[in-house]
Amino acid sequence: MTVTDQDFQLFIYALKNSSKYDFSQYSEKSLKRRLAKVLADNRLNLTSLINRMKNDTNFVEKIVKEITVNTTELFRDPQVWQAIRYAILPKLKNNSVINIWHAGCSTGQEVYSMLILLNELDLLDRTKVYATDLNSDVLENARQGLYKYRFNIGYLDNFDKVIKENPYNFEEYNDVPYEKYFSIDKSNDLIKMSNSLKEKPIFKKHDLVTEDNTLYVKFDIILCRNVIIYFNYELQNRVFDLFHKNLYDNGCLILGLHETILGTYSVKFQKKGHAYYKN
């Protein structure tokens, strides 16, 4: 099923009217395709979808979850986590407090990756980790810290690359057992994050499009990875402004592997390896 431009505009408008969500500045191509899929999966036409959205907030939440992309991994793009480990976090080792914000954290794998790394570097106790997402369902998943095992065996390879191996010294090998941070329950096909990790972060619902910083602190590191690729160019700039205002002076922003700062904000940040430092 294809969605016409007009249908698409109608949907965006209806969503805006029946909720606080504003998708009008999302990247159109991908969102249109998601919408077509949602219509097909729910066996709805656009009119019935819009009508149901008007008086069913749970349904709106479900639809918003379905039209956004939530894929994520533990230690996604290991080379970025190696940079966080060897280049970015060490700069903060003399801070008495470290604030980190995961904006668009999805089901939390990125947050647990950071917690594990912080613990390995003995920085966990002085760090406050905030994790936000638009979608309350993924946040609930993130709080539970439960992931499918068989589908995600790649997590273990990523863990090995970042935690056990040292890319700068092939002879070094830290045999950190997985059980230090999560248990693997093969019979139930689950990876379970340990309670000590789960207690640590503050998970909160937050919309990057419509809200200001509702965490009321400034940050040393903001991770916003694979979120702004779903925004159009103008909206990306709004988000860069938000991040710029809420970073400490020597703070940095970490984006997804193929995301970058183009345009006006590119001069307000300086790229060093995988991080954009506030100028």
Binding site: S27, K29, V69, I229, Y233, G256, E259, T260, L262
Partner: peptide, 30 residues
């Protein structure tokens, strides 16, 4: 993502990303 296309250059879709073309000559990854 959102890079503007220029003539006389080749753009290879990155592994594990879809590559879309947005209007205004911009690439969008997903």
């Amino acid at each position: 993502d959102k890079e503007q296309l220029k003539p006389s250059r080749a753009y290879l879709a990155p592994a594990n990303y879809h590559m879309y073309l947005e209007l205004a000559n911009r690439i969008a990854l997903s």
